[in-house]
Design a protein around this nucleic acid. Sequence first.
DNA 1: CCACACAGACCGACTAGTCGGTTCAAATTG
DNA 2: CAATTTGAACCGACTAGTCGGTCTGTGTGG
Lengths: 205, 205
Amino acid sequence: MRKLTVKERVVEAALDLFQEKGYHGVSVEELVEHAETSKGGFYHHFKSKDDLLYEIHDIFISYVLNETKRASEQYDSAIDQLDALMRTFMNVFNIYQRHITVFYNESVYLLPNHEEAITKKRTAYRKLLEQILINGQRQQVFRQELSITITAMLIIGTVNWTYKWYKQDGELTMQDITTYFNDVILRGVMTEAGYREAATKQYLL
Amino acid sequence: MRKLTVKERVVEAALDLFQEKGYHGVSVEELVEHAETSKGGFYHHFKSKDDLLYEIHDIFISYVLNETKRASEQYDSAIDQLDALMRTFMNVFNIYQRHITVFYNESVYLLPNHEEAITKKRTAYRKLLEQILINGQRQQVFRQELSITITAMLIIGTVNWTYKWYKQDGELTMQDITTYFNDVILRGVMTEAGYREAATKQYLL
DNA sequence: CCACACAGACCGACTAGTCGGTTCAAATTG
DNA sequence: CAATTTGAACCGACTAGTCGGTCTGTGTGG
């Protein structure tokens, strides 16, 4: 385990403190104390307190976006793609839950200054999911009468909300949760043909 | 339309401003200006700025809790109950979307001071939903292998997340959205017997 | 005249960000 | 290889401003 840089220590401290007390509940003073650095050190690496919040967001959203793209490109079947997307997102919880929590709690304060950069990546992610749903309709495995937009929102809502209640040391693992989610969502969106494919591939309980 | 009281004007102003700029993005100064009152007026009605945030939350959660209880008590069938719960929650969006937005965005800052009061009502709501799912399993209309906890979280996540993207003046009405949500979720959780009941009752697309 | 609703000047605590200064390791030079 | 230079990393006292909350005063309806 290599020694952490100051910048990394600051991010670590921020994740712990922001998650607990919120962005506005933690002063830069308190932050640098936990990170075992100083005000000077902090402002050497970050333009502002706001800038730190943005970086935390970007670390996480970039990772999710890349991983999801990579994962879904490995498959042709929309059912496989949807499963991959879900698993990818749920996997990053184990690494990035603190980032996600901080991001969703504080995004109101972040938006005015970094709106463009944020919206871009979030839209890209939504499009990725919507494309999978469209693929599924083309492949006749997802029902034609589905609204792409609303279905996408249902899925995003389901996975995103997990940050509000998932506990890493709880009795449910991310594996379990994803399996359940996939089961309910797939059954909810699939056609008969899709059902047969998913059953064969053991996606259902 | 009767004249609004100072207290009501403050709450109205808070909902508009907090939704846009967040709780910490709005000073009491700015708030009372928008509400066309003064600091004295504000502190005559509220113990603190924090207290206002709590009231906003309580107005909304109390309403949802009562309405949901009332709605689900009207039915014996778990399918009807789940539909009623969904419709109730989605309906309050048209009245309380601003409350909900403020509440979820700022709940981190609210918790330390009002933890007990908040947790109580939120837990009550979750229990209500879980009980409906259990009823459904007893009635053999929801699948036995469902995890009550995870399914409840999927549903709560789906409906709660709506505050992030639903626009009152958008092309989708809350009616449309709820119908889609119900369709996907019901298909996801039901047994064959449940499917026949729901189809008869026109809950599916 | 008194209780209540409200006004707004004021206070004190707190905090984001600055800035002159220090350290130290690596690059440059003679 | 020592002597010297350089500059990035880091420090922390300080500032300028903000903002939640208080307090005294004032008008008003009963």
